[in-house]
Design a protein around this nucleic acid. Structure first.
Lengths: 119, 119, 119, 119
DNA sequence: GTGGTCTAGACCACA
DNA sequence: GTGGTCTAGACCACC
């Protein structure tokens, strides 16, 4: 796996897993790969995966059962929630950044349409 | 000046100045505030401003004249260039993030329109 | 290590490392000494080494991995490239300087031969 | 006039004048342009020209007569001397730099010949 | 342990 | 006055 240099790897791991939940690759209640397994697979230090998993627990996205493993929380509304939270942040961030460099709402929409229709 | 906590101050300074150029507050050829002046004004260490300025030089946005000061490069196309580069990055980032969490082009546009028309 | 007085130490560090890469003492992919280690070894401030290393990163000669270390880029053509770039600059600089003080191509060659053969 | 950024302007001025002497544009005994005239011509601060002239006096290359002006020293061997000194430094610098990056004497000669014959 | 950032303070050459 | 460099020392996040 390829990591962006300026963002902590453990955060990138969390984002990766969140996306998999949003896209249905991982479902509520599913077991996560073990720290060692996953670390080996994506070639990072196990401590880094450990930190990512712990952070996910802290956020209420996962929980651990001793001796058995870690699981995505069994909250069926989780997917919707994640998707909604993520998209809201992304959209707000987008608008504020464009506004800061002087784009009006109409220009933002125009630029986006142009980009979506053809590159 | 108020700084975001997790982004290096020198990067925030660069962004601030780029925005000022884009918005026409600073024009090509204009003299930048001296390192010491600017540092005092925004209450950071002069070295931090120095680092920001030097990074801007490396990016080709400014140049220094010893004993005289630092200047925005005298490239009249600079403003357009900066605005275009910035908006391109922002838009591409936006689309790729939305796509990664499963939004279609139409959904992206719909969500954006909704947000722009009233929140 | 001995430093020329009028050239910034951090630039001399960069030149030193480039030469080591060119001469094969450092190979692509090799780990650089840590900032602190190297600083202690050559008796300069760690910040000075840091600055040299960061400049090498900007030039695409090295990259850093947080918490792990810094490495020469894993580009096998790097050595050739560095050697070629360096020699090209040196030769062009030499010829232009000699030409500027009125030496013809033949005279340049004669003077060089004389110097190489003994004096 | 265009100045290299990393070399002090006053040194570049000295080099310029030395070259003019070597090339016979300025002859021993010739009057130098006044500080103000020259400064205006090459668009630098008069102080900078002043410093260049003073340094040339210190080196024994020029002398001043109060109220009259500054002159290149009337030493007929000066031209030869300057040319010889300059070329010696340039050649030694060239050889040592090429040797440091692993070029043998033969390779140095080959590269130079290649460059002089067409490249 | 590693690199990254920041502060404080100093000295220098240059204009 | 200006920018450029360097030191000393500190704190942080990351691995």
């Amino acid at each position: 796996m390829h990591f962006e240099n300026h963002i902590p790897i453990y955060l990138q791991i969390i984002e990766l897993i969140k996306k998999q939940v949003i896209l249905g690759i991982l479902k509520p209640g599913d077991k996560l790969e073990s720290v060692r397994e996953f670390a080996a697979e994506i070639k990072v230090n196990p401590n880094t995966v450990q930190k990512a998993y712990q952070e996910m627990e802290r956020e209420g996205l996962a929980y651990s059962q001793r001796g058995i493993g870690r699981f995505i929380v069994e909250d069926e509304s989780l997917v919707k929630q994640l998707r909604h939270d993520a998209s809201k942040l992304i959209i707000e961030d987008f608008i504020s950044k464009m506004t800061e460099i002087g784009y009006s709402n109409d220009e933002i929409l125009d630029r986006l349409k142009a980009k979506l229709n053809g590159g």
